[in-house]
């Protein structure tokens, strides 16, 4: 092969990078389903497959540099992939676990502290109103609408 011959496109690198990108940005989608929300299996799988392809792509780029492209771009994409994986893991396994202990929260067997708050129509509703008209009331303190 002459020096000027066109080298093959190293698709392992690009597909691997795209999978890592998908792993990084797709949690808001997977958070809709409890099985992929409570533990980010789908995201970690995307990162894993992406990582394998990036490694294979790097082997191609450096092992057969005359055939494949990617000696410069490959390491850049691989580092970006590692950074995305690192940041995702940091957020999911560290930041999201920084929850206050709530040791003073009411416990099973105690009376639920009474309150009165405005409902969606601006009408005052008390806990007693709710418990008196049904067998049980589920109180859900949420954030981010889920």
């Amino acid at each position: 092969m002459s020096a000027g011959a066109k080298k093959s496109w190293n698709w392992f690198l690009w597909i691997g990078f795209l999978l890592a990108l998908a792993g990084f940005f797709s949690y808001t989608f997977f958070a809709q389903f409890p099985i992929t929300r409570d533990f980010p299996w789908a995201n970690l799988l995307l990162f894993a497959v992406g990582g394998i392809l990036l490694v294979l792509g790097l082997f191609r780029a450096f092992g057969k540099p005359r055939v494949y492209r990617g000696k410069i771009l490959g390491p850049i994409l691989a580092i970006l992939g590692i950074l995305m994986f690192g940041f995702f893991s940091y957020v999911f396994f560290y930041v999201l676990r920084q929850v206050p202990p709530s040791t003073g929260a009411p416990r099973v067997g105690q009376k639920a502290p009474e309150f009165t708050l405005s409902d969606q129509d601006g009408k005052d509703v008390s806990l007693r109103d709710l418990t008196s008209r049904s067998k049980a009331v589920a109180l859900i303190f949420y954030r981010g609408f889920w």
């Binding site: 409570d38 999201l96 676990r97 929850v99 206050p100 709530s102 929260a105 009411p106 416990r107 099973v108 067997g109 105690q110 009376k111 639920a112 009474e114 806990l127 007693r128 709710l130 418990t131 008196s132 049904s134 067998k135 049980a136 009331v137 589920a138 109180l139 859900i140 303190f141 949420y142 954030r143």
Partner: peptide, 22 residues
């Protein structure tokens, strides 16, 4: 912080869920 309580008709708490991951 996210939390869920089940309160019965007497106002007594029957079940609590305090998550460790938001």
């Amino acid at each position: 912080r996210p939390a869920e309580f089940l309160v019965d008709s007497t106002g007594t708490i029957r079940w609590v869920n305090l998550t460790e991951n938001i």
